[in-house]
Design a protein around this nucleic acid. Structure first.
Lengths: 177, 177
DNA sequence: ATGTATTGTTAGTCTTGTCTAACATCTATT
DNA sequence: AATAGATGTTAGACAAGACTAACAATACAT
């Protein structure tokens, strides 16, 4: 779905093909740097370039801007580091990513790859207000004292069979009275 | 939150202020045209311009592109109409918007204005796969045979009080055995 | 220590979508 | 029918972010 060669997101809908450009925003760079920092000894332009599917000159340009904004430290031909400010933003972006990813994969049951891609895209557009609600929701569902909530089993059945599991419905309604 | 004057989306996070540009994509234009079509006799450049918070020349430019792509019909100084193809896309976008809006407002309990704004932004980035799941989820929750699901009451309590409603938890666990 | 391969940067171009300023057309009122 | 005001369009500029081609610095291997 995500085409690394031209960084284009393509999908088909009822015979219509639509293409939506995806652009790595400055937040993506910060996030990438933070993630790479955990995996590598030194963060270098080439790593960032590969991770974001972007050519090296784009990385250099982005680093210039981020440097000006005081979010990264970067000397010519040197490695890359986040400043305190940059790290704070990166951590917030990663948190948003994590919330979205868990919601998509663990609650909605979207496959992991798609969930990752979508989290990357949505993490920049959802307002803090909605994201906090979603975070609460994910926490609420995944820390259910009974383990997997019954209704969630019901949802999975619903997705798979296109109708509700009558046993669960009965179980549920019974408590109504 | 959404500043109509410069079409900028601004928010603060722990002392850091970030600004994210928002750009009305071609899908936004199609959606706007479709919505206006339901409200007005004729869809005109000025209406679209107001609805999307962009200047009129931007609308004209967008209409040129959409015309070339065969998605709208538009003669100089005339009104705007969707082609069949354009309408199909617009309807799909509206459906995505609707799903996201209902999820945010009716399930997460996000206020209506924020939910609208976020739906507008997210509707372009979520993959069809995830969106279908979300649609199922919204349908599943909102057509619960017992009315509002008990767990949803529990969630609202959780958001409001920061902890679970022990009565609901007990009720829920009791059925475990 | 020197030369080759890797890595990074610069310069210049393209695309997308926005804007302002100036101009063109339409409409409705007299 | 003439004209004022509203509505649309053109032209030209700008910003962000990507790309390629060419050049510069580094690092490693002999």
């Amino acid at each position: 779905m995500l085409d690394k060669t031209n960084n284009t997101f393509k999908y088909d809908f009822k015979g219509l093909s639509m293409t939506t450009e995806r652009t790595a925003s400055m937040e993506d760079y910060l996030e990438a740097i933070a993630v790479l920092r955990e995996e590598e000894v030194e963060v270098r332009v080439t790593q960032i370039s590969k991770r974001l599917g972007v050519k090296k000159p784009s990385v250099t340009a982005a680093l210039h801007k981020l440097s000006e904004d005081g979010l990264v430290k970067h000397r010519r031909y040197g490695h890359v580091e986040l400043t305190g400010k940059g790290r704070k933003i990166a951590e917030e972006v990663m948190r948003r990513h994590e919330v979205l990813f868990r919601f998509l994969s663990e609650i909605l049951g979207v496959d992991s790859d798609t969930a990752q891609e979508d989290a990357c895209k949505v993490e920049h557009s959802l307002s803090p207000t909605s994201l906090e609600r979603l975070a609460k929701f994910v926490e609420f569902v995944l820390t259910c004292p009974r383990g997997e909530p019954l209704w969630h089993k019901g949802f999975n059945y619903f997705v798979e069979h296109g109708e509700r599991d009558q046993e669960i419905v009965a179980n549920c309604l019974e408590k109504e009275s």
